[in-house]
Design a protein around this nucleic acid. Structure first.
Lengths: 334, 334
DNA sequence: CTGAAAGCGCTTACAG
DNA sequence: CTGAAAGCGCTTACAG
């Protein structure tokens, strides 16, 4: 089998022209059935595969999409990637993965690579640092190059691009309402990500659902660690339910409860943004917001491909929201 | 900025030939400083970027490596990918990610794609199904195409390729010895992966370290579930320490201990193959074998690149083993 | 020092 | 029905 055979070599063996071979292989009606068959037979015999690089050059496209992931160890993003890969495969697209590690610098480098034209389009969730510093020039540069870009998950930023995200605000609005419907009033929220878009939205959902009720918010600040704030909420304020916007705040909360001998869910109910595969194995298991990351990935690829093919007209931007699901495990049992 | 400018367009604007522009941009000594500067200036102005597809075609390489991952939701593989990405970036290589989802069929499809020449080399961890069925033809086909292949992590298979893995056997040999050194004799092992290579190696490490001592093994079989086997070990056999070869057996063990009111680590010590980010957050936290996945990824890319560049001679195969580390958390406290 | 030409491997409009 | 030619965007040996 060894090294790859080319069209030219095939054509030589068959004593026909390269064009004839190419057409035959593409089932062109121009070619006589007889030649077509001869060609295909030999191609099969030699296990001919068109050189994708050459095909791409000819077609001025790459069949490839670039995916920028802030942190692959976060299983949320791992599962998004899984959805992306599955959907890309449906479209015969390859995905090139870049990991920014939540770093603005790395993200800039990646965007620079991306502008060189290795990919037909880009799927990106911006890094935390990028959001904090609100530095988006490199993203605008990408857009300037006319590369189709879809922003996923972290969509709460001002960028003229298509977006596919999660309904962060509604999820915690609903979770808060859930507790209220059960008659609770002392409901708090803890967050280690209050400075980034998704954190803000989750907090805002909570606040809206609290209406006139007093809100209790724990976040790290100059006056103390997140842990001390959570302790205050649990011990001094005696909240009966706590929403956690992220893994860190959820884990700290369970620690504090453990240390203070606060029983979950008897004394304290918890619902948090925490990934399924961890939530289920904690003791007690932690109720969480399921974000359907894989579907988010699938949707992101769909939108990107609509953009690439021109189905979405320039100047208009799609914004898709994936609905979340509340999953009740032990920590929110009544 | 808009759509990309080409060498030809640049050359037209400058009234020089395409070759001159190309050489100038590559700092060829053939070109006069004056022209070189003119060219570079205009190139910069128009933000010229060579079309990577064309460059690749010309150079008959792709600058890309294919990575096949069995299951990205497993944070072990996510972290391997992270190492791969980081190292590839050092070499200006892109990585194309494929996820087999532990499916043999999908793995075959992927190998088929890979043979078409999209990548300069392949990093693969074979799927569980592939191992169970011991079907390796598609991998041999890859090798037949002369595509450099490095097998990572799941290296206990008979394939003439470079391998980078983890010292599974030694890790559990050492863990067993650790318990014995503490004076324990009733040491058991639980496994949900006794049928795959890494599972066998871990069990074998345990057995070797037990010498003449009686071994206690829990694995699912026709006579009962893994859980019932573990219950037997903990209740009837009263093992004092249990090694778990995988996440599932570790989690079942903690459940059983919880249900039976067996105190960890007082009544039962545990060391398991479980990922750091979960191990640390269980209550009690679970001692684990750190496999250094990121370094494994880095090493895999290094070996692959040596193979690609011909630094490893044909017919000889590299086999690198990354040393594991025992991390003692609460579950193995004495 | 500069440029014309060939070629990487393919596709396709055009001519015969 | 078949083939010669142009071209995708680049690099580089060769000629001038």
């Amino acid at each position: 089998m060894k090294s790859k055979i080319t069209l030219k070599e095939l054509s030589k063996l068959l004593n026909v022209s390269v064009s004839t071979v190419s057409k035959a292989l593409h089932d062109s009606p121009e070619i006589s059935p007889k030649t077509a068959e001869r060609v295909k037979e030999l191609a099969k015999l030699h296990n001919y595969r068109p050189n994708p690089v050459a095909v791409n050059l000819k077609k001025s496209k790459t069949g490839t999409i670039g995916v920028v992931i802030p942190n692959i160890s976060n299983s949320f993003f791992a599962r998004v990637l899984s959805g992306i890969e599955a959907q890309a495969q449906q479209h015969d697209q390859q995905i090139i993965t870049y990991i920014s590690n939540e770093s603005l610098d790395r993200e800039k480098q990646i965007c620079d690579l991306l502008t060189s034209g290795m990919v037909d389009g880009v799927l990106i969730a911006v890094s935390e640092e990028t959001q904090k510093k609100a530095e988006y020039e490199h993203l605008f540069a990408l857009l300037d190059y006319d590369i189709p870009v879809v922003v996923y998950d972290r969509i709460n930023l001002n960028l003229p691009a298509d977006k596919v995200g999660v309904d962060d605000e509604k999820s915690f609005y609903d979770a808060t309402r859930f507790f209220r419907a059960k008659g609770l009033e002392r409901i708090g929220i803890a967050s280690a990500i209050h400075h980034v878009g998704i954190g803000k939205l989750r907090i805002s959902g909570y606040q809206k659902a609290m209406d006139e009720l007093p809100v209790f918010t724990a976040r790290s600040s100059s006056e103390g660690t997140l842990k001390s704030k959570i302790e205050k909420l649990l011990i001094t304020e005696k909240v009966e339910a706590l929403l956690c916007t992220d893994f860190e705040s959820a884990i700290i909360t369970t620690r504090v409860a453990y240390e203070q001998n606060i029983k979950i869910p008897e004394d304290l109910k918890i619902i948090g943004y925490i990934n399924k595969d961890i939530a289920e194995y904690l003791t007690p298991s932690l109720s969480y917001i399921e974000q359907h990351p894989s579907e988010l990935g699938v949707k992101a690829v769909e939108v990107l491909n609509q953009r690439i093919s021109g189905d979405i007209s320039a100047g208009k931007f799609e914004e898709k929201i994936i609905a979340t699901t509340m999953v009740h495990l032990e920590s929110s049992k009544f």
